[in-house]
Amino acid sequence: MTAVAAGRPGAHRSAKARRRRRSPALTVIMLVMFVYAVLPLFWLLANASKSGGDLFSTFGLWFGGDFHLFANIGDTLSYQDGIFLRWFGNTVLYSVVGAGGAALLATIGGYALAKYDFPGRRLLFAMVLGAISIPGTALAVPTYLLFSRVGIVDTPWAVLIPSLCSPFGLYLMRVYAADAVPDSILESARIDGAGEFRIFRTIALRLLAPGFVTVLLFALVATWNNYFLPLIVLNTPDWFPLTVGLNQWNAQANSGTSGAGDATYQLILTGSLLSIVPLIIAFLVLQRFWQSGLATGSVKQ
């Protein structure tokens, strides 16, 4: 941007030349990064398409003798009475309700912290910052004991309720709301006689939409990949999300003491492949909002 703005004469040519010039070192680094990012995915795809017999007897980074992906998908979806689909549904439930709720609560809370002056506001915000620094893993066991008292252990609530709290999202929305919602708009709305909730709903929420999507994406990824909390609070496989379920299959395949066992390695690979597809789609669809959201935030004032 600055290069184009500076020195009008000849700017066209130099910009063009700059675009043409390639840095071999950077290209190599980019290629290495590309391989680093894509290789595991390719490995997953290649191995998920192998039959059980080929899995450990053919080269790891290429496809096996025959293309078995669709048969594997069929097996994965029907194994143990189709529990994979149930796990998939659970993960969708936890992510959509958990992440949606977390983003909404973070937006409401962040807006309130940014725009209202009330006693204890600073203390509350400091506590939010403190909460970010405590890893969720450390809270899992006390959370369990608490839920056990309330009697919601081993129910979906035990996963959903903690997912609704996103201190990081709240922090992000507070910072975002401070800039994105000008005080003058709020004041003029108040003068026009709008109630506080109406102001939030009709004005602030719209201005905050890009921030909302950002928090939603973060929360979506976090709840989709959430492992430790559901591992602790859920015992019944019927309520497991994909992460815990797939790990259970993995543990089962990795132990001779687990009994007759089945050749579950392909199911784990295929299941892992299937479980990342929705995240890839969510990113492709939502990244537009994300980019524009961040840009909007930075140029607003």
Partner: peptide, 23 residues
């Protein structure tokens, strides 16, 4: 019949549930 996890995973759950007094 519930598969609550394998080996150490299950023991952690079992001990937590025993301590919690239910589950």
């Amino acid at each position: 019949v519930v598969n609550a996890g394998q080996s150490a995973d299950q023991y952690t759950k079992l001990q937590t549930a025993i301590k919690a007094g239910s589950g």
